[in-house]
């Protein structure tokens, strides 16, 4: 396995984990501020434990018992579905056809709904626990899929899991220090970069598993990253010319 594909794996997993944890952090902070920190943090921690178990329970048998070529086609297809979905959203956001992800708005909505949900319970708060658990678990599920897919197909499950954990700890650490949602993180840019890497790995592994000969072997992965970067930028530019008129532009 070339250094370049390992580096792209680390970047993809780190970016995906960081950006999903930024989104999870918004929900945990909202639950902590409006219902109490203890239960919100317990809910988040419980979700992290369950996600970690999922990586072991799903990932290890995949590596041990599934033939590598079949595994690469299935994993490549999963990465393609995920990566193409992220890239589609990124293109639509970059070209003005979809609203950017807004952590401040999500934070305000979550705090509003939690305050409507009734007064804060004394001691442990089940609502804060459940909201934080669900937020971290749902955002983390995509990270688990990426960790298991990339890790299993390259036999680097440990490295992929460790990278995701480092990113999650970094985001959580910054969140604890600033005690608020991280709305300054360029989520859309990171998601675009991760989408490009997932799509590149997806095409590569589907081809590799099916028996396609890639010129340069693993060195084809950085080339694919370049191709899909150009396609994403070109598609965004093309769709920007088809952007809907806003009220301000119409006057």
């Amino acid at each position: 396995m070339h250094t370049s594909s390992t580096l792209i794996l680390v970047l993809a997993v780190f970016g995906a984990s960081a950006v999903e944890m930024v989104e999870a952090l918004t929900i945990v902070v909202a639950a902590g501020v409006s219902r109490g920190w203890r239960s919100a943090l317990e809910g988040a921690a419980a979700a992290v434990v369950v996600l970690g178990l999922l990586v072991g329970v799903v990932g290890v048998p995949l590596i041990r018992y599934i033939p590598i070529d079949a595994l690469r086609v299935v994993v490549g297809a999963l990465l393609l579905v995920l990566g193409l979905g992220w890239l589609r959203k990124a293109i639509l956001r970059a070209s003005g056809h979809k609203a950017p992800h807004d952590e401040d708005a999500i934070y305000a909505d979550t705090v509003g709904s939690l305050q409507v949900d009734g007064p804060r319970a004394s001691g442990r708060d089940g609502v804060a626990f459940a909201v934080a658990f669900k937020g971290v678990f749902l955002e983390g599920t995509e990270v688990v899929l990426i960790v298991v897919s990339l890790g299993a197909s390259q036999h680097r499950l440990g490295l992929a899991a460790l990278t995701a954990a480092v990113a999650a700890v970094l985001v959580a650490g910054v969140g604890v220090i600033v005690s608020r949602q991280l709305s300054e993180v360029p989520e859309n840019t990171i998601k675009t970069a991760v989408g490009i890497m997932l799509t590149s790995f997806g095409v590569f592994w589907v081809g590799e598993g099916a028996g396609v000969h890639w010129p340069g072997s693993d060195l084809a992965i950085p080339v694919l990253v370049g191709v899909f970067t150009a396609v994403t930028l070109g598609s965004s530019a093309l769709l920007r010319t088809r952007r809907p008129f806003t009220a301000a532009e119409a006057t």
Partner: peptide
């Protein structure tokens, strides 16, 4: 195959993004 697979993937991506665009106005 190594040329066609990425090209086809790019074409599908563009078609899907095109489908998802908002109409002018």
């Amino acid at each position: 195959a190594a040329i066609l697979l990425p090209l086809l993937t790019a074409a599908f991506l563009l078609a899907s993004a095109w489908r998802g665009r908002r109409a002018p106005g």
